[in-house]
Design a protein around this nucleic acid. Structure first.
Lengths: 337, 337
DNA sequence: TTGTATGCGTTATCAT
DNA sequence: ATGATAACGCATACAA
């Protein structure tokens, strides 16, 4: 079969345990034997079996990634790849691999996590998807399994999470519009099933309040995180009201909102100003280029991974959270009124 | 520690091997004991340790994914997430996990693969990146390790790969432009280091030849697979020639080409027609909506995974390849001349 | 149909 | 500093 630690041991005339120590770079081992062992590894092309290693050491050096339930959502919105990019950079630096398991529905997702956790396939998990109804978090907490969450969970007690200040970000966006003289400001977001949508709605309301602008529920709509979702939401609003500006909590949705406005005979930004969220690469090249809130997606990934690794290094690390800053990117989709 | 197969065996008053057989759903096992074992698994919450399982059975039920060298490229171009989506759907159906390992440079990439292969962490590998200079393919072939490649490798002898008919696709695109009355047709692609760029250039030339249009090398440019890359390539061409149409082998680059044209005072499609490649989600919402070649990115992922699984199921499966069809999506970026 | 024994390739705990 | 030897948790060939 393949060359094992025993073969190397024979070649080097030492015990397998010594070879193991050399691999682990154990300090108390003489230079001479270390050399000899390395030589004995070279020629036959020895490489440690990670599986056997994991079994014995109970360390896998791999991080589990739980994507949003539908692979559709997971990979079609640039948000997730960008988060993964952040995670993978950190993981790579620390010599961790990434194990990904997609799932179609809630039950499958649960199974995927159980499989990773109870199957001992990963050392820790990053949850890319925090729904308000998530039962994964309580389960992981109960299992005392190391994990971090991207997006503040509804019940964040005892869990480590990374997120933006979503209330603040939304308030920032809304205030920007208000300062540009807008008063009829619509708010379009994804499902309120997501904490992030809830928080951003709150930020929007907050900004209105601060400026004594009444909240009008006909100016608010939710829909899917997609171009079509944005289109439909905007259309629903336009049937009842005529906002002069709109806050859209996702750039992809913004594209749909723009299309809806145009279909409705409105020009952007002359008739409707628009501010998006996420600052995806293409929003800069939209027509008009999108003013948007950059939520530092990449950083979200980086921090979530760093936090997880910190936990792994110090098992009884206290529950903690990290707020990643946002930044308003001014482009051409908003004008003064 | 955690509950193991032995604990279950004791509870059910059977031998560990019997429990193992129940897990493996071995046919020759009585209904009664099977029931009893299942019961004994329930209460203490037994779950098989995948690592131990792998060590004993030499099967990991995970597929390794080798992304393009820079995580940058890997996740910023929608092509790769979409491919991953295809792969993950198939993997999920067959109860395989995905192990991802990103890498910064060629050396790291090699290490990542060695780590997966010699570390016995995966059963097979899908290469998402076939550079013409790739030394990974010969290595994997020599190791007799199961793998498939997305994109036809330069030396495809004895390797299983999945790709479009790139020559045909490019010829299709070019002919479309020619049929619309264009004769001054530019060709912008990524680096010729990629086989795909080479093939598409050939297809372009082929179409010109068929129509007795001379090949003009000033009308051809290569650059990075990015918006900026497209912009720069187009600018370089415009400084020498004034094409009435251009074939761009990547939608992201197309956005840059459009921007360059506009900066140069040209309207799209009135002054320059444009046909892209990949049909990424947002190309439909570009301005103008992009006419493009849909290369069935998702299918590319699906087929590569299916092919790999076929190999895994039948170790001495013959080298084979799969051509995934392309489709021309007509939108608004081309006009008759 | 079920049990026994051994191996999978390491790490880790004792020794020495 | 190094060597035996026992885990690690499961699969499997061989018995029964």
């Amino acid at each position: 079969m393949n060359v094992t630690i025993k073969d190397v041991a024979q070649r080097a005339h030492v015990a397998p345990s010594t070879v193991s120590r050399v691999i682990a770079d154990n300090p108390r081992i003489s230079k001479e034997t270390k050399e000899r062992v390395f030589k004995a590894m070279e020629e036959p092309g020895y490489y440690p079996n990670a599986i056997a290693r994991s079994l014995a050491s109970k360390m896998t050096y791999t991080i589990g990634l739980i994507m949003p339930r539908s692979a559709e959502d997971a990979f079609s919105n640039p948000f997730f790849p960008e988060v993964m990019r952040g995670i993978s950079v950190v993981a790579h630096n620390e010599k961790y691999d990434l194990l990904i398991s997609t799932s179609g529905n809630e039950e499958e997702e649960k199974q995927a996590v159980i499989n990773m956790v109870k199957g001992r396939k990963v050392d820790g998990i990053v949850l890319l998807c925090s729904r308000t109804t998530d039962e994964l978090i309580p389960w992981l907490r109960e299992e005392k399994f190391p994990f971090t969450v991207i997006g503040k969970p509804l019940d964040s007690k005892g869990v480590c999470w990374v997120d933006n200040d979503n209330i603040g970000a939304s308030r920032l966006a809304t205030n920007y519009l208000i300062k540009h003289g807008h008063k009829e400001i619509a708010f379009i977001s994804g499902s309120l099933e997501f904490v992030v949508s809830l928080d951003r709605l709150d930020g929007y309301k907050l900004a209105l309040e601060e400026n004594n602008i009444p909240f009008v529920k006909e100016l608010v709509a939710q829909d899917e995180f997609s171009e079509d979702g944005g289109y439909n939401a905007m259309m629903r609003i336009l049937k009842q009201k005529k906002p002069t500006a709109v806050v859209v909590t996702d750039d992809i949705m913004s594209f749909g909102v723009i299309r809806a406005a145009i279909d409705y005979g409105l020009r952007v930004p002359q008739d409707v100003s628009l501010i998006g969220f996420n600052n995806i690469p293409l929003s800069a090249y939209a027509n008009p280029p999108l003013t948007t809130i950059d939520i530092s997606t990449f950083e979200l990934g980086v921090k979530s991974a760093e936090l997880l690794l910190k936990i792994l290094k110090n098992k009884d690390y206290m529950a903690d959270h990290i707020i990643v800053p946002v930044k308003l990117i001014e482009r051409k989709s908003c004008i003064k009124r």
